[in-house]
Amino acid sequence: MDLVAAIGLQLAYVIANLALISLGLAIIFGMMRVINLAHGEFLMLGGYTVVVATNAGVNIWVAMLIVAPLVVGIIGVIVERLLIRWLYGRMVDTLLATWGLSLLLVGLVTSIFGASTATTVAPPLGAIRIGSYSASGYELFLILITLVLLVLVWLTLRFTKLGLLARGTMQNAQMASSLGVSTSRIYMITFGLGAAVSGLAGALLAPMTGVLPTIGATYIAKAFITVISGGSAILAGTATGSVLLGGLNGIFTFIAGSTFGEIALLLAAILLLRLMPRGITGRFFRKSL
C-alpha cells in the first residue's frame, strides 16, 4: 500500500514535470506558431535567476515565484521586439533564429558563470514519509503548483480581456487588427507571458536539478514532443499529452529502468502522431482551450 502511494506520487510528479516544462512552449509554439528552440534556455535562465537572486539574499520563494518569471518575461519581451516580431508566419525562419538565440544564451551564460555553477539552492521543503517510504516534500509542492499554473493560464485565456484578444489575434490577426486590436502589442505580451511561464518552470526545477548553462538541452526535446502530441488546444493538449507520455515514461521507468522509460515516451509519441497527426486535441477535446 505504501509502495502504491509512493509510486503514485512519483507518477504524478513525472506528469507534472512534463507539463511544467511544456506549458511555456505551448503558449509560444502551440498558440503563436513560433518554433522556439530557445525554450530550454528560457528554463535555464529561470534557474540562473533563482541562483543569482538567492545569493543576493532574496528569499527563495520570492526568487522562484516572482523574480524569475519577471526577469525571464522581460527577456522574452526584448527577444520578441528585437528578433521574433520580424518573423511571424515564417516558421522555418523562427526555427533558425531561435536556434541561434539558444546558442547565444548558452554562450553568454557560460562566459558569465562558467561551465558549472555552484548552486546552493537546496529544495526549501524537507522529506515527507509515506509509511516505510520517503519522498521529497518539494516534489509534492511542484505537482500542486503545476496544477495551479494550468488553472491560472486557463482563467487568463478564458475570462480576461487579454485572453480573448490574444486568442482572437492568434486565430485571425487581420480580423483582430481591423477590429482595432493592436496585434503587435498582443503578440509581444503573449510571447512575454510564454517566456515568463518558462522562467517560472525553470526556477521551480532549479532546486531539483541544479543549473548548468547546457541544462536546457535536456528539456527541449521532451517539451516539443509533449506540445506536438497534445495538439492545437494548448492547455488541454499539454495536460493530456503530459498525462499520456509522462504516465508511460513513469510506468516503464519503474518496470524496466530509465532507458526503457525514455524509449516508451518516444515510441508513444511516434505512434500517436501516426494515428492522430494533429495531436490528441485534434481528435478529442476539440473545443477546449
Partner: peptide, 15 residues
C-alpha cells in the same frame, strides 16, 4: 540500473 545521460528525474529510482 542505467540512465541515459540527459535524465534529470530520478524519483522512480529513489523509490
Amino acid at each position: 540500473e542505467f540512465f541515459p545521460l540527459d535524465v534529470t528525474n530520478f524519483g522512480p529510482t529513489i523509490n
